[in-house]
Computed example of a mutant assay.
Amino acid sequence: MTPELKELERQIIKKHKFGFTPKYESGFQTCLSEKAFFAITNQVFEKLEWDIIYIDEHAVEAKRKVKSLGITQYTESIIISYNYGSITVKSESLGSEMWDNGRNSKRVHLFMLVFQDIEKNYNREDLKQLEKEQESIENWDNYIIPKELPQPKNVKKPTIIFVFVIGILISIILAFLLAKISITGRYIIFLFEFLVGLALAFSIKQGIKLGNYTNLTKLKYILILCTLIIFVGTQIFEYYIILIENNFEKIGFFEFMKIRLQQGLTIKDLNIGSIGLIISWIIQLFLTFIFGFLFLTRFLINYLIKRVPQEVTEFAYYLIIKGKDEHEVRKELTYLGWSDEISQNEVFEAIDGIQGNNELNRTR
């Protein structure tokens, strides 16, 4: 932001909010049409350097970012809604804080002040022109229809085998590593579930790229299978490592598990028993899957988008904006060299990926 805007923000009186996710909301009335309002809203976001992450017919959402120690992170989400001239401006914290120190109220009122400052520069004729420009942007009227498109790469028939094999192999390796770490007593809950989920998702990602396989439902099932393999494999590896390293008399695996349950789970000097141990296992399974699924979804969406040249995706999306149905879009793609059905399917998946990415960006 400019020094003038920073000074304006500094002068805004704070209104402190508390909660698991502190938020602040205010509103105002406007005589502007919906299109004129959102056209000015876009200018406000650009002036405040807030990143627009989501737009629909009646609302737009942006996130404010800050850079500290070379790391950029989002601090607040600002949602602007229009309902027949009634405007709602809401700011919500994105961190783990329970007290926002008045920051959300500052974002809301700063938006309103900058909006009013920009609005007063438009007369009636200017607003009509602004409406036309906004409508033109929404309808992609300035889009130049290409005479040719980048041609599709060699079509790779989707196969799940690479995902399955790589996922299983990595799961076994992770199970062994976790067993070694657990025996030393250095296992840190949440951290290791996060790392294991990331490693699982990354390995499945490699299988996705090798096999060109993108069915999220079946990928989720493989992730569940891999999570179970890691859990069971960890117990089995712990069993063998303990017997071998301590030269214990050999007992059966199920007898080993029975002894573990009888001993329960000890946290520092507190033993929370077999129930606590079972609960910790359930938490580990749940967290590993959740982290893995979140990373996998990100990886998959990124793959879907990058698999198709941007020019092709934009062309197909333009046709959809103009009211073309799927059959008509496929026909137009065929004219420009995208005649293979698998390649055409990848274009539609890329569009779905962009929409999915927008939704993920909205997550708090």
Rank of each mutant, 00 (worst) to 15 (best):
I78F: 14
K180Y: 04
Q29I: 14
Y240H: 04
K220Q: 07
F194K: 00
R362P: 03
E311R: 03
T21R: 12
L360Y: 14
S77N: 12
N42P: 00
G19E: 08
Q116H: 08
F176C: 08
I161C: 08
A179W: 02
L319N: 03
S280H: 10
D51K: 13
F231L: 15
E311H: 01
I267E: 06
K258P: 00
S339E: 08
C226S: 15
C226L: 14
Q235Y: 05
Y82I: 10
N121V: 07
K147I: 10
T313F: 13
F192E: 08
F315Y: 13
E138Y: 11
L113T: 04
M257T: 04
R10N: 15
G197R: 02
N357P: 00
A199L: 12
S182E: 05
A59K: 08
G276Q: 03
L225F: 14
G19Y: 09
I236R: 01
I282Y: 03
A36G: 10
I161N: 05
I189H: 06
L360S: 13
I13N: 13
I137C: 10
E46L: 12
Y187P: 00
Y54V: 09
L261V: 05
L200F: 03
D117W: 03
K324A: 15
V347M: 07
F162G: 04
D325L: 11
N212H: 08
I161R: 06
S171L: 11
F164E: 03
N101I: 02
D100H: 01
L300N: 07
C226V: 12
K156P: 00
K209M: 08
G197D: 01
K322P: 01
K324H: 11
L277D: 02
L261F: 14
A350V: 11
K6G: 13
R364I: 14
I170F: 12
E255H: 06
F190V: 12
E193H: 02
Y335S: 11
E4M: 15
D141V: 12
N101A: 10
T184V: 13
Y82S: 04
A316N: 05
P152G: 09
P152N: 05
I275A: 12
Y82C: 07
G19D: 09
F295H: 03
V308I: 15
L304W: 12
Y303A: 13
E34D: 05
I181N: 08
K128H: 00
F192V: 07
S136L: 13
L174D: 01
Y187A: 09
Q235T: 00
I118F: 11
Q262I: 13
L195P: 01
F45C: 07
L210D: 01
N361H: 09
E49V: 07
F315K: 03
L200Q: 07
N345G: 14
S136G: 09
A179M: 09
K132P: 00
T159H: 07
G211Y: 02
